[in-house]
Design a protein around this nucleic acid. Structure first.
Ligand code: ZN
Ligand code: ZN
Ligand code: ZN
Ligand code: ZN
Ligand code: ZN
Ligand code: ZN
Length: 161
DNA sequence: GAGTTTGAAACT
DNA sequence: CAGTTTCAAACTC
């Protein structure tokens, strides 16, 4: 585990905590900063809290990527796929060499690849057609208002510039 | 359930 | 970088 993560990326991933990565895989959970009303998550989400909160993914439906790219919500959230996933040809499992390689490749493409996801929404959105009022918009999906970091057009999600 | 729309990720 | 393609989820019917 440690080998493929450190590889030659010690600088890029210096802020990344390996132990977090491993625990996420083990428990299929991600810490999240705010409440989410999203079908992808199976748990209740009544309480709003600023603290980290663990949310369980229901599962992905990837057909073409073997769940080894950020298209896959499981992979993007540092989780293995699990029973609830309906993916085809899934390689996002423990002890798959392809999976280890894919993690490194994702770091290569973007050193912050695993610091953000659709479900943490830390980079804002770039919506063009949804007016940020549907779940196509990652801000709306997470139940938060668009902010100055968003570059959306015709935003109806309480944008403050 | 099938087909369309959407915007991020990936690719060139 | 920018433009294009690919992808899986969100959405519509
Ligand atoms: Zn997947
Ligand atoms: Zn999955
Ligand atoms: Zn999978
Ligand atoms: Zn948006
Ligand atoms: Zn936004
Ligand atoms: Zn917006």
């Amino acid at each position: 585990m440690e080998d493929h993560l450190n590889f030659s990326f010690s600088e890029n991933i210096s802020s990344f905590k390996l132990e977090d990565f491993e625990s996420f895989e083990t428990y299929n959970e991600i810490p999240i900063q705010f409440d989410i009303g999203k079908d992808f998550f199976e748990n209740d989400h009544q309480e709003k809290t600023k603290k980290k909160k663990k949310i369980k993914l229901v599962g992905c439906n990837c057909m073409k990527t073997k769940c080894l790219k950020l298209y896959c919500e499981c992979f993007a959230n540092k989780m293995y796929c699990k029973k609830a996933c309906k993916c085809r040809n899934c390689n996002n499992c423990a002890n798959y060499d392809d999976r280890d390689k894919a993690v490194v490749e994702a770091f290569e493409r973007n050193s912050a690849a695993f610091e953000h996801s659709r479900y943490t929404c830390t980079r804002g959105c770039n919506c063009k057609f949804s007016e940020c009022k549907k779940k196509y918009c990652s801000c709306f999906l997470n139940g938060i208002s668009c902010t100055a970091v968003c570059t959306c057009e015709n935003c109806k999600n309480i944008k403050i510039r």
